[in-house]
């Protein structure tokens, strides 16, 4: 199996507080994987460690065959072009228009001329289902859902092999959230992308996820298909999946 992400006994400590106490898992190419866990279990911290923003106290992380924390800054930058990251609130640059935001990765990482970049940026907007006139707006003029789509277009700009999404549906209404979920799944299936999603959203989990990894008390307590993890004995997992029950009943 072609593993694109391997997290091997990662330990993270902030002072005396241990956030991760030997976290290990791996993700195969083409999988859509979710990482869940209660607030404060270090999901976002783990994501930052994987994409090379925060150094873990111990352990190894291999992303697309590169040791994230054992390689040179140049190799790390090379690696950064091969994955896309969707930040929680989009993190679009507020001083640029949406089209300029999407053009940034092309301008900085390729030597393509503007007359190729501009239509490409426009196409990326269409790819995430945004109308063309969105390109001329500034991020402040967009709704939450549109901002996430625009940020997704920027994350997809350099044709990443793996896509990291931090709480992609938070702050969206249920209709918008489901539409965003199916967009992510469609892109993963059509483009052969691997997706690693940090989420709280149970509906995301039940609709588009192949495999779920549960983080609790610094360890991975469950790892497998959603249907199997749902039946796990752990109290937090039971409460998490039960949270939906009243709405269903």
């Amino acid at each position: 199996m072609d593993r694109v992400l391997e997290v091997d006994s990662v330990v993270t400590r902030f002072g005396a507080e241990t956030v991760h106490d030997g976290v290990s898992f791996s993700v195969a190419r083409g999988e859509v994987v979710a990482l869940i866990g209660a607030s404060g279990t270090g999901k976002s911290v783990l994501l930052k460690e994987i994409i090379g923003l925060l150094r873990p106290t111990a352990g190894r992380i291999r992303l697309l065959g590169t040791d994230v924390w054992g390689s040179s800054p140049a190799a790390l930058n090379e690696l950064r072009r091969r994955f896309g990251m969707l930040f929680q609130d989009g993190a679009l640059f507020s001083s640029l228009t949406v089209a300029e935001n999407i053009a940034v990765p092309f301008r900085e990482n390729t030597d393509l001329p503007m007359d190729i970049i501009a239509p490409l940026a426009g196409f990326k907007l269409a790819l995430v289902g945004l109308p063309p006139e969105t390109g001329r707006k500034t991020p402040a003029q967009l709704s939450g859902g549109m901002r996430k789509r625009a940020a997704l277009a920027r994350a997809l700009a350099l044709e990443p092999e793996i896509l990291f999404l931090d709480e992609p549906t938070s702050g969206l209404d249920p209709v918008g959230a489901r539409a965003f979920d199916s967009l992510v799944r469609l892109l993963c299936d059509s483009l052969g992308l691997t997706a690693f999603i940090v989420t709280h959203d149970l509906d995301t989990l039940l609709s588009i996820i192949d495999r779920v990894i549960v983080l609790s008390a610094g360890k991975v307590i469950a790892d497998g298909p959603v249907a199997r993890v749902m039946r796990a004995e752990d109290r937090w997992i039971r409460e998490y999946f039960a949270a939906r029950a009243p709405a269903v009943a």
Binding site: E100, G122, L125, L127, P131, P132, S190
Partner: peptide, 20 residues
């Protein structure tokens, strides 16, 4: 062919002019 199908489908809305 899956990828091309998606690209083709999404291209139906004409790409935006990105010039300011």
């Amino acid at each position: 062919s899956r990828l091309l199908r998606l690209v083709h489908e999404r291209m139906k809305c004409p790409p935006a002019a990105a010039r300011s």
